[in-house]
């Protein structure tokens, strides 16, 4: 199983560290050639406008969209914005890979960023983990094809469809590998289908 971390901008190094802990050697993806070698890809946190602008300019946008229709992508925070199908008020197009509507910077500016406990349900088991919310977005609506995986208070903070896994917070900034393990499980399930 070969996992890539999109390394155009953002905290891709933290995702790579997380995968290393799980004994997975991650490939840093900056080109379509690198992307083609991956079975699953993580789009990290960062600035969604930067990620979008740079990917569109360097021929990564189209390949990533096609990748997400066939293989598994895990998007955290900015990565979630990029794969969403609707982001009102966002000047850029998105990859339109999961039927969720997302509000950017929905909790406010950096002074409103916070850490609190989120409640997940992964493979039928309840799991609580530390949710690090940095200028975080909110999932404000989910389509029928979307399965909700977790909440912070009343907000949906983690969700998935057939190929795409998303969360609004940053598991890569914690020591909790649960969501990364779930992502790897999703990738391997698709490989064996």
């Amino acid at each position: 199983m070969r996992i890539g971390v999109l390394a155009v901008q953002g905290d891709f190094g933290k995702h790579r560290d997380m995968l290393l802990r799980l004994d997975i050697e991650a490939l840093l993806v900056r080109t379509p050639q690198a992307l083609a070698q991956c079975d699953g890809v993580i789009i990290p946190g960062g600035e969604s406008t930067t990620l979008t602008t740079v990917m569109q300019k360097h021929g990564l946008w189209q390949p990533l969209q096609e990748f997400g229709r066939r293989k598994v992508i895990f998007g955290t925070c900015a990565g979630l914005i990029i794969v969403a199908n609707e982001v009102p008020g966002h000047a850029h197009s998105t990859l339109d890979l999961i039927d969720i509507t997302v509000a950017r910077n929905a909790y406010g500016r950096q002074v409103d960023s916070f850490i609190d406990t989120v409640k997940l349900e992964l493979q039928g088991a309840a799991h609580t983990m530390e949710g690090v919310f940095i200028r975080a977005p909110k999932i404000v609506a989910c389509g029928n094809s979307v399965h909700i995986l977790g909440h912070y208070r009343k907000d949906v903070v983690a969700a998935e469809n057939e190929h795409i896994l998303v969360c609004t917070f940053h598991p890569e900034l914690t020591d909790d590998t649960a969501l990364h393990r779930y992502f790897l499980h999703k990738v391997s399930r698709h490989l064996h289908d």
Binding site: G10, D11, G13, G45, E47, I134, L173
Partner: peptide
């Protein structure tokens, strides 16, 4: 610790930019 983690968190998001 928590407050610092949130602060460093934003710096992490700015990496590679």
């Amino acid at each position: 610790d928590k407050n610092m983690k949130v602060k460093i968190g934003l710096a992490e998001m700015l990496k590679g930019g």
